[in-house]
Nucleic acid binder design. Structure first.
Lengths: 193, 193
DNA sequence: CAAATTGTCGACCGGAATATTCGAAAATTT
DNA sequence: AAATTTTCGAATATTCCGGTCGACAATTTG
């Protein structure tokens, strides 16, 4: 291997797929090793413990999500489209990530405080992005928002409401439907008539 | 509970969902019990062991599949449609079932010989269905098959080829695409010009 | 080349998780 | 109220799995 960092990334990607399928607890080091065609012990040369791998995976995925979101709003001009894109990409990502969360909320609440740190950092970033969208929409006289800060917060809260059924395994509920509902209400309450 | 059989069915359905998600090994009796809102020990009143539950689940699912397949070919008249329906239903089912198999093929090859028994019985039934379709198609002068027995065997072999990437976790490959490819080739080689 | 460093791995350990048992007791039937 | 069926908590037995260790292969250094 040329580079230690290089190999760590390989592990992260490989382990990420398994974690996302089975969650933290149900994923074994043996599986990760086998997926890498490697002895289990070798992995410990690159990572201190299983938890460290998980942490790296979450960090990595969070980064990808951030980029996807940024791109999704840069790719269109209209504020409406920006918001729509943002919300859809976000939901898609969280749907995929729900497995990670299911695993965490199981028991190990004490450990994994790093998840909370990532989460709150991400929350702040999200708020900034949403505020930007709101501000931009207001500037272009498409949105009717008095205070973009507060409106962004409201939107964020609504989006979080969508996560709940995603993580609380009530899969029957059609998320897409709800999402469209929220967007509909949102726009009709926000758009200039 | 009115009836022991009734309750066994409840267990089978509930456990089936968990097995299909996590496979045999990664599914715990605790999870099954919790899903049933029941003490773990109570389940042992109805089933001898975890393996017996799994066996019952597989049996149950195989039965459902058989019915779905029978219905799918009864629901249309045209031989082409019959074959198409059959193949699609079959693939859909196997996609769903792939988790069971992943779990089994992992290590426990010694146990679970009952799977092989089910499998070979199912194979024979499938062959019979396919032969019927072939025969019917020939009768209606839509298919150009000399020996429906051999043609059915060929079709079955092709279908099994589709399973491989399904179970061997090469999820990237688009199965639907391959399936359409196979059907295309199949019909153009089989249909009367 | 040899010494040092880096990387890989099999074998092993101990604690945790988990399947299964058991007896007691609740619930239901007789 | 006795008998039977069903449930369950606690205990047990067993397997699993994260992590360690030392040997050694591979590579680098000098």
């Amino acid at each position: 291997m040329i580079n230690k960092e290089e190999f760590r990334k390989k592990v992260i990607i490989s382990a990420g797929q398994i974690f996302s399928r089975y969650g933290f607890k149900k994923t074994t080091m043996d599986e990760i090793a086998k997926a890498l065609k490697m002895g289990k012990s070798s992995i410990y040369y690159y990572f201190k413990c299983k938890e460290e791998i998980f942490e790296a995976v979450v960090l990595y995925e969070a980064n990808i999500l951030r980029n996807q979101l940024t791109n999704s709003i840069k790719s269109v001009e209209s504020p409406v489209e920006k918001l729509k894109n943002y919300v859809f990409v976000r939901m898609k990502a969280f749907e995929k990530l729900s497995n990670y969360y299911n695993a965490i909320f199981d028991k190990n609440l004490d450990h994994f405080d790093f998840i909370e740190r990532i989460r709150s950092k991400y929350d702040r970033e999200e708020l900034a992005m949403l505020r930007l969208i709101m501000y931009h929409g207001a500037r272009m006289k498409v949105f009717n928002v008095a205070n973009s800060e507060y409106t962004a917060l409201a939107v964020q809260t609504a989006l979080k409401g969508l996560e709940v059924p995603l993580f609380w395994k009530k899969r029957e509920v059609n998320i897409e439907e709800r999402l469209n509902g929220i967007l509909d209400v949102l726009f009709n309450g926000i758009l200039k008539k």
